[in-house]
């Protein structure tokens, strides 16, 4: 493997971190879903590149799943849910955008500081890849914390999963068992969420998680 292969792999992985940052400040539902689709597309590029440079054709399957399932099917399904429930209003972040972005940048710094010195003894190639993956995971966590809306929490969770797949494919020769099962468990997870959203609508006509919190005043959260 030459140096240019690494550089391209890192470029794409870095791109995924960038899209994660973009996801963080979306304040409209449809824009959020579009950017999530973009997130999945960048992931599938990263995975496909890994398949090429590691000469592991089975990774193309993972790339295809990322592209078709998370890049197209899930965003479309979420889009339909959003339209049906009529919740395409602006998203209400718990924390302001500026503060969220600063926290996001801080988390990326943290991921680099934690991983880069640690992995000097291990496979040097896996190092940057793990650092990027950890950044994506942490940004996804941040997104789940700063949004109370159920749909954006789901998007945050799926971006965490994308980060995990990035890490798994970056690890040299990691058996495919895990990748397929990761993809598969996302599918299951999504079915669960689908059922939940359906049931929540059945009962409450809202997917605002805040409205589900019985500890809070009832009228206050409902718009």
């Amino acid at each position: 493997m030459g140096k240019i292969e690494f550089d391209i792999a890192h470029l794409v992985a870095g791109g995924l971190v960038l899209v994660s940052l973009l996801l963080l400040y979306q304040d409209r539902m449809f824009a959020l879903l579009r950017f999530f689709a973009g997130h999945a597309v960048v992931l599938s590029l990263a995975v496909a590149w890994q398949a090429l440079i590691q000469d592991k054709p089975e990774l193309y399957i993972t790339a295809a799943i990322a592209l078709a399932f998370k890049g197209v099917v899930i965003p479309l399904a979420l889009y339909r849910i959003v339209v049906r429930l009529g919740i395409h209003r602006e998203l209400e972040p718990v924390v302001g955008v500026g503060l969220t972005m600063l926290a996001g940048i801080g988390l990326i710094g943290l991921a680099l500081v934690v991983i880069l010195p640690l992995t000097s003894a291990a496979d040097p190639y896996a190092r940057e890849d793990l650092a990027f993956a950890l950044s994506v995971v942490l940004l996804g966590l941040l997104m789940m914390i700063t949004r109370r809306n159920a749909v954006s929490q789901v998007v945050g969770f799926m971006s965490i999963e994308n980060g995990l797949i990035l890490a798994a494919t970056g690890a040299k020769g990691m058996p495919l068992v895990v990748e397929i099962s990761v993809a598969f468990s996302i599918l299951i997870a999504f079915i669960v969420i689908g059922i939940f959203l359906f049931r929540i609508r059945e009962r409450f006509d809202t997917v605002d998680v805040g409205a589900l919190d019985s500890a809070r005043a009832e009228g206050e959260r409902r718009r």
Binding site: A122, D123, A126, L130, A133, L134, V137, L141, M144, F157, I160, E161, G163, L164, A167, A168, A171, K172, G173, M174, V182
Partner: peptide, 18 residues
């Protein structure tokens, strides 16, 4: 989220082990 963190740990263990 817990299980996602555990998977990240699992991947790192593999990276070290391989």
């Amino acid at each position: 989220v817990g299980i996602a963190l555990a998977l990240f740990g699992t991947i790192i263990v593999y990276v070290v082990a391989q």
